[in-house]
Amino acid sequence: MAKRVVIVEDEPNIIEAINFILSRDGWDVTVHANGETAVDAVRAVRPDAILLDVMLPGRSGYDILKELRADPDFAALPVLMLTARGQKKDREMADALGVTRFMTKPFSNAELLAVLGEITAGA
């Protein structure tokens, strides 16, 4: 059974690229572009991992991460945060909120797949 991943991202071109890469690698990809409803989507899909953007319309990636971590069901859910704001304090903020991994855009496709495989290895 293919592992499920939810992509929370609002840039259409980036969604298209990641969707292509992950699908090609055998992932079951669900795309969600709206921050406000992202947590609901995660609850519905019950993914094995999330790719979470920081700057989203409606709600920031940090808020979504916070809510997920507050929910026992998702306290240990692997969350790979992707952000174009590559500053140190963004990484610290994400770490503090319990992110599993943090990557700065742009990334290499191979690296993305490797990290995603790594954080979902135990599952």
């Binding site: 980036i14 298209e16 690229a17 700057m55 174009a84 855009k105 191979a110």
Partner: peptide, 21 residues
């Protein structure tokens, strides 16, 4: 700086991902 970084890195991300593909 955060904004500029974001504005620059976002198109870069697409460009890099599709270039690799």
């Amino acid at each position: 700086l955060s904004q500029i970084s974001h504005e620059l890195r976002t198109p870069m991300t697409s460009i890099r991902a599709f270039s690799e593909i």
